[in-house]
Design a protein around this nucleic acid. Structure first.
Length: 108
DNA sequence: ACGTTGACCTATA
DNA sequence: GTATAGGCCAACG
């Protein structure tokens, strides 16, 4: 496993419950700005990881739950987020700015 | 080895 | 404001 993915998983695990972040923010935090697609691919691998990775707390920059289809059920991601206090409406995070968690500001 | 795809983002028009 | 184009790099067929 490349250090990139390992770092992605580590950052994602640091996301507190009830907060979300974006692929671009993680990619930028890791110094691979522009390679946000790799973060998405890392999320795809997150299911194989031995440790639990809250991939449901990672959405795109619009707060849209684009990756929900990759979960067991399309509503799984939404249910997980709502269970943590994040309100979802029309597959979008309500008050995205309010629940946004920036790794750049929190970690580095 | 090559072409296509993808849980994205930024920039132009 | 929406629409389209380009870029990023790894995985898959």
């Amino acid at each position: 496993m490349s250090d990139f993915y390992q770092d992605v998983f580590e950052v994602v695990r640091q996301i507190p419950a009830g907060k979300v972040t974006s692929y671009g923010a993680i990619a930028r935090y890791l110094g691979s700005a522009g390679s946000s697609r790799m973060v998405g691919w890392a999320m795809n691998l997150s299911h194989h990881q031995p440790v639990y990775v809250p991939a449901h707390r990672v959405v795109n920059r619009n707060g849209l739950l684009t990756g929900k289809i990759h979960f067991g059920s399309p509503c799984q991601m939404q249910e997980l987020l709502e269970n943590e206090g994040v309100v979802i409406k029309d597959d979008c995070v309500v008050n995205f700015q309010g629940v946004f968690w920036d790794p750049m500001a929190e970690l580095g």
